[in-house]
Design a protein around this nucleic acid. Structure first.
Length: 600
DNA sequence: GCGGATCAC
DNA sequence: TATGGTGATCCGC
């Protein structure tokens, strides 16, 4: 914690900066026995004077200013009558409490020092020495290295200062993904619909497994972990809890090679959260931690006495998120990542400082070519293009533009990105960059699915690194789930097609400028009736899509209204939605994913 | 809608 | 000597 050890509650400027320099993974496992004071000193001295350091210092100063404002605002609020805010907060918490679901067993599985562990399988001699994977920046390190204060995300030259004998291994992602696939095959036996959170993490809902096998969740997870270890030689840690948020926190509790459970009782959950540092919660990082600490919130239990202040100090979204933290609520619905919708594709690279305009153009051309490949791989075109640069001072700038038509080819991307770069060169005389990148958003799918809306012919999903095993190959999967999966995919494709159409309607020239394989041919049924409202519709594909989409939304709202109002118990900060009206059932702000209810 | 900032892994 | 890449979300304007 910042300021610790100086005998003062108020952290000094250096303390916050040093804490910042320690990196984001301070709270991770394997650091308990480390003298943080000493480590922090070494990192500080290794970094001092560098451009990176100066930038961090600048950021730290800005945060301090923000926190000072926060303190003044809090002092101002304390003099006001907040009874209205207090009542509102209590009403919201009561509302949240009604959504609590304690019927599910959710598990978060986390591989221990995954990349390092995989490397150790190939070269067992690495097990006995401090070792890290990565080049300029470490992606993972083994537990021997952590004893020296070495952490993921740390610059390797700093790590070498902490631990001169540290062995560095270049990363080999293909190897890790292959291993991850082996592990996922085992996870699927416990929950075929498990969710890959990343290469080395997954969420499972083992409620059905436990019921079918008459097994205690802890016993089931013991078995799961043993099975993974036996078959793949990778040790994993796990958290068991009534929801994903707590399960995630629990998986870190007994790392490595351990597990921890918070039982499905309200008192157990509340007690667990009460003393839990807010930083342990997914979504609360170093900055928010500092802000919360400055007003007196260190643990999730501390949130409650401040409930009346939170909206005015941090905004509505943060208030709702913190409310869920205090109550220990989280999602219980675990679903494969394939069901999520991609929002952007991006590429960026760091290089040594470049000021020469010609050289920068060459970097931009390269980025555009990378982007073309990525868009082809993910099967998208893009209607919004964003240029990202990092100056030699580490300051990051972005500039965004909307090309007249969706782009997918390198030459088009370059054409529309170049003016942004030129403008930046003019704005910043003598501009020197250390990074250049491109991001595409407002995506339009180019997947060829045909338009058999009611045929439900599922398309095989592109297999990305974190994708779950192909559901269609798992013959033991419930037929209804497979059906639902296909339906979800269809709805997704449908919406993408709709976007594609609207985009083409706006710019007719695109249909000519692209070859047939880029743009799927749209063949709607000649005549049809809307399956929802039953009304006959004109055989115009655009109207068809718009109408069905509209009807689907309406249908969904009706269905949700009929179901219990607890449908969506809660969600994490990143997925939480507006909730101005207290009752979600009457809200028209429907999560698109809920449209699948129609297919039940 | 845009740009900056934060967060996770 | 030297501090990453990808994707997402939220806020203020």
């Amino acid at each position: 914690m910042a300021g610790e050890g100086d005998g003062h509650a108020e952290p000094s400027e250096d303390d916050t900066l040093k804490y910042q320099l320690l990196g984001p993974s301070l709270t991770k496992a394997g650091q308990d026995a480390v003298d943080q004071q000493k480590v922090s000193e070494i990192i500080y001295n290794a970094s001092k004077g560098s451009k990176f350091f100066n930038h961090e210092q600048e950021r730290d100063r800005n945060q301090t200013i923000k926190i000072e404002r926060l303190g003044k605002e809090k002092a101002r609020l304390e003099k006001l009558d907040l009874s209205h805010d207090l009542r509102r907060a209590d009403e919201y918490l009561a509302e949240l409490e009604l959504t609590r679901d304690l019927t599910q067993f959710v598990v978060h599985v986390d591989c221990d020092a995954f990349f390092a562990a995989v490397e150790e399988l190939d070269r067992p001699e690495l097990k006995t020495v401090p070792m890290a994977v990565g080049k300029g920046v470490l992606t993972t390190c083994n537990y021997l290295a952590r004893k020296f204060g070495v952490r993921s995300g740390m610059a390797s030259f700093v790590a070498k200062k902490l631990c001169p004998q540290l062995v560095l291994i270049p990363s080999n992602y293909d190897k890790y993904t292959a291993k991850a696939t082996e592990i996922r095959a085992i996870l699927a036996q416990y929950d075929p619909l498990f969710e890959s959170a990343s290469c080395d993490e997954a969420y499972l809902n083992i409620t059905a497994y436990c019921n079918e096998n008459q097994m205690d969740p802890e016993e089931a997870v013991q078995r799961l972990r043993a099975e993974v270890l036996e078959n793949t030689n990778i040790s994993v840690s796990a958290g068991i809890a009534p929801n994903a948020k707590i399960a995630k926190i629990c998986s870190n509790k007994n790392k490595p090679n351990g597990q921890f459970r918070v039982s499905n009782e309200r008192t157990a959950v509340m007690e667990f959260m009460r003393d839990l540092p807010v930083r342990k919660v997914n979504g609360i990082g170093r900055v928010f931690e500092r802000e919360l600490e400055s007003i007196g919130i260190k643990t999730c239990g501390d949130i409650y006495p401040y409930r009346a202040f939170l909206t005015k100090l941090f905004g509505e979204k943060a208030f709702q998120f913190l409310g869920q933290c205090y109550l220990g609520l989280g999602r219980t619905k675990i679903e494969p990542v394939g069901t999520h919708e991609r929002k952007s594709v991006s590429t960026e690279t760091t290089f040594h400082e470049i000021g020469d305009n010609e050289e920068l153009r060459s970097k931009l051309r390269w980025a555009a070519e990378e982007m073309e490949k990525d868009l082809a791989r993910t099967q998208f075109k893009s209607r919004t293009l964003c240029l990202k640069v990092k100056l030699h001072t580490f300051e990051v700038l972005t500039r965004q533009t909307a090309p007249p038509r969706a782009v997918s080819q390198a030459k088009d991307i370059y054409t529309y990105a170049l003016p942004m770069l030129v403008k930046l060169e003019k704005e910043i005389p003598g501009m020197k960059l250390r990074l250049l990148g491109l991001r595409c958003s407002n995506l339009v799918s180019t997947k060829k699915t045909g338009l058999n809306f009611f045929g439900f012919t599922a398309q095989p999903k592109p297999s990305t690194l974190t994708e779950t095993p192909e559901r269609n190959n798992e013959h033991e999967i419930d037929a209804e789930e497979a059906f639902e999966s296909a339906a979800r995919q269809e709805v997704q494709d449908e919406m993408n097609e709709l976007e594609q159409l609207s985009q083409e309607a706006a710019s007719p020239e695109i249909a000519e400028s692209n070859s047939a394989e880029d743009v799927p041919v749209v063949e709607p049924p000649a005549q049809w009736e809307c399956p929802i409202c039953g009304r006959p519709q004109a055989a115009d594909d655009r109207v068809f899509n718009v109408h069905v989409d509209f009807c689907l939304s309406r249908q969904t709202i009706r269905e949700i209204a009929q179901e219990s109002p607890q449908e969506e118990s809660s969600s994490s900060m990143s997925t939480s939605r507006k909730r101005k009206t207290p009752n979600a059932a009457t809200s028209t702000d429907v999560d698109p994913r809920q449209k699948r209810l129609f297919f039940r």
